[in-house]
Design a protein around this nucleic acid. Structure first.
Length: 657
DNA sequence: CTAGGGTTAG
């Protein structure tokens, strides 16, 4: 077990040529040799007597021929009458094992058409769809299974769930599992194991894992050693140290011997809190139980010491790792470098970084990214950029983290050319930017005062479904307003508003102060209406100051869309602001200029009466003077007198308050 | 001749 733990994956799986020699003899060789061992003792003579004729059966040779054919579908069709489902499964697995995904799918499609699928076919196909990173196809094929007994078959279910988990589709794996249960799946230990391994990288993974453990127990299943390993790993990565200790003890109590997986997870749990005393005790326990620490154990212990600031001990341990040949790649050095940086010893970290460069330790860029970030954070911008350049000059391959790290180094030294090179690299390597990338760029474009680029990047970030950084974006919203791009500013406001449940209260007022002077009154009205809605939902104090509301109202009455005037009045009133007579006066002036809107005018006046508002004397005179324009002289006079009467009662109340 | 689980780094 321990030996297997530190061994890499079987190399042959990756080194085997894409088209292995299809000779039946070679394919059968391992099988024969295994049989010889057992058969030699049991019945040595029977082999000679009962050996079948060397001539292979027609089914066997058909399988061999399809495996070797350049066009497997054509070959399958040729042998349609000979092959059975289990033969096709052999062929399917062959294309899976040799990683020929295109042929794999074609063979599966052919089997589907010829109604030659059984649970084994599905299980295998889902496994390879997992390996070829195609969970969507697995979901689709699973969804198309008609036969109920196949849909809830535990191996079919386990394989499709495994495919999802392997590809990071944790949410859909849990959803699908619930569906399977509803349809009648009886999950086994492997089902739970598969789902639990999905909890490892999930933010709410610990809670979900506890749910699954309860469920597993209530079904009468017993946790095995591997499940305990998974659980310990989940506890460690979710910083539940005490829970990890509890499970570790339970594992022992149930008669299991902890192995190196369990110990390494425990160490990892202690590393999170830098609990080196407990880690040392655990190491004693490990050795006394007869286990030998492997590369992972020693590396994780190094993490405990590094995080705990025990740099002397960490150094010693690193030397031990080197002596054991466990320090051939940069990982253990990275752990110590990272610890030194976080402990404020940036120059010691730098020295170790240089040391591994001199030693020629194999690097994937991790050490570079740690140092580039460390220098950046320490304020050594130029040095940080130098390292980024050095990495770039090595012509190494980039991943997302390395790109982000380099990008930040270039942005903070205002090296636009290198920024563009990084973006090009990102494109070429098909790496999609994440929130960090976007925010780095937005911050940079903002600082460089290239607001249109900042805006474009915000838009891009929003479209790709990332949550915007409110502080940064509201800063750019202001800048866009100042630079004469009010529509863009409003668009940023909307992206913030729709992206988050709550935004900072002052955001609404800020955008209003951009929109009103720019004459974008309809947009300003949308802002006011929205805050009115928020007021109802959150029941809190004013989001927009009376002063800004008044500015908006005045502008709207003068030049806003006349058809919306009444709506705006109502919205203003609902937002808790007492509309001044001056504003009503402006509205009435507008209506007097447009007599065909008389219905709207009447509505306004009626509404005012209902709300206890009244027009001032000059508006009153204006209306009476122009009442013939509206053709309803009598009606206007009536409405006004009713309003006057009403306001004598309520008006006083408002003045007093 | 069905699927299938656990440990370390930016």
């Amino acid at each position: 077990m321990e030996a297997a733990a530190s061994l890499p994956l079987p190399a042959s799986r990756f080194l085997s040529p894409p088209h292995p020699p299809p000779t039946p003899a070679a394919a059968a060789a391992p099988c024969c040799s295994r049989r010889n061992i057992s058969c030699a003792r049991a019945a040595p003579r029977a082999v000679e007597v009962s050996r079948p004729p060397p001539r292979p059966s027609p089914r066997r040779s058909a399988v061999a021929e399809v495996k070797a054919a350049p066009d497997p579908v054509a070959a399958l069709t040729r042998f349609e009458d000979v092959l059975q489902t289990q033969d096709c499964n052999i062929i399917l697995r062959h294309y899976g094992e040799t990683r020929r995904w295109d042929e794999l799918s074609k063979v599966f499609g052919w089997m589907q058409e010829h109604d030659m699928l059984n649970v084994a076919s599905y299980s295998s196909y889902f496994k390879y769809l997992g390996l070829s990173r195609n969970p969507a196809r697995a979901l689709q094929v699973y969804g198309d299974i008609q036969e109920h007994s196949e849909r809830v078959h535990v191996s079919v279910c386990n394989s499709v769930l495994g495919c999802l988990v392997k590809n990071g589709r944790f949410d859909s794996s849990f959803k699908l599992y619930d569906e399977m249960i509803r349809e009648g799946l009886s999950p086994d230990l492997f089902t739970y194991s598969t789902l639990l391994s999905g909890c490892m990288k999930l933010k709410q993974g610990y809670t979900k894992a506890m749910e699954l453990v309860n469920e597993l127990n209530s079904r009468g299943l017993q946790m095995d050693s591997v499940i305990y390993g998974t659980l310990l790993a989940i506890c460690a990565s979710h910083n539940c140290c005490e829970k990890a200790e509890e499970y570790f003890q339970k594992l022992k109590d149930e008669g299991h011997n902890p192995n190196l997986f369990h110990y390494s997870s425990m160490l990892n749990a202690y590393a999170e809190n830098a609990n080196y005393e407990k880690a040392d005790l655990l190491m004693k326990d490990l050795r006394s139980s007869g286990l030998t620490p492997n590369k992972v154990i020693l590396t994780t212990l190094l993490k405990v010491y590094s995080k705990g600031g025990l740099f002397e001990k960490a150094r010693e341990l690193l030397t031990e790792l080197e002596a054991s040949g466990f320090a051939q790649d940069e990982m253990p050095y990275c752990i110590l470098i990272d610890g030194l940086v976080k402990g404020g010893k940036i120059w010691e970290a730098m020295m170790l970084f240089n040391e591994i460069k001199d030693k020629g330790v194999k690097s994937d860029g991790y050490a570079f990214s740690i140092m580039i970030s460390a220098l950046h954070q320490g304020g050594y911008r130029q040095e940080s950029k130098q390292l980024a350049k050095e990495f770039q000059a090595k012509n190494a391959t980039y991943d997302l983290v390395m790109l982000n790290t380099s990008l930040r180094a270039y942005c903070s030294t205002n090296d636009m050319e290198s920024v563009m090179i990084m973006l090009k690299k990102m494109d070429e390597s098909n790496i999609s930017p994440d929130a960090i990338t976007f925010n780095t760029l937005i911050r940079y474009f903002c600082k460089a005062k290239v607001y249109h680029l900042a805006y474009k990047t915000i838009q891009d970030m929003h479209t790709k479904g990332h949550q915007l950084n409110e502080e940064l974006c509201s800063e750019i919203m202001m800048q866009l307003g100042e630079a004469g791009f009010p529509s863009e500013a409003f668009s940023v406001y909307n992206m913030l508003r729709y992206g988050k449940r709550t935004v900072c209260k002052s955001l609404h007022e800020k955008v209003l102060c951009i929109l009103v002077p720019a004459g974008l009154l309809k947009d300003a009205y949308i802002v006011v209406k929205f805050t009115e809605k928020t007021l109802i939902e959150q029941d809190n104090a004013e989001l927009i100051s009376p002063r800004s509301l008044e500015n908006f109202a005045r502008s709207f009455m003068v030049s806003g869309n006349i058809n919306l005037i009444n709506d705006v009045m109502k919205a203003l009133n609902r937002s808790g602001w007492r509309i001044s007579q001056d504003i009503f006066g402006k509205a009435i002036q507008r209506y007097v200029q447009k007599p065909d809107k008389k219905q709207l005018l009447f509505c306004l006046l009626e509404w005012m009466t209902g709300q206890g508002y009244s027009v001032d004397s000059s508006s009153r005179n204006l209306l009476l003077r122009n009442s013939q324009l509206f053709g309803q002289k009598q009606l206007i006079a009536e409405i006004l007198s009713k309003q006057l009467g009403a306001s004598r009662i309520t008006g006083q109340r408002h003045q007093n308050s």
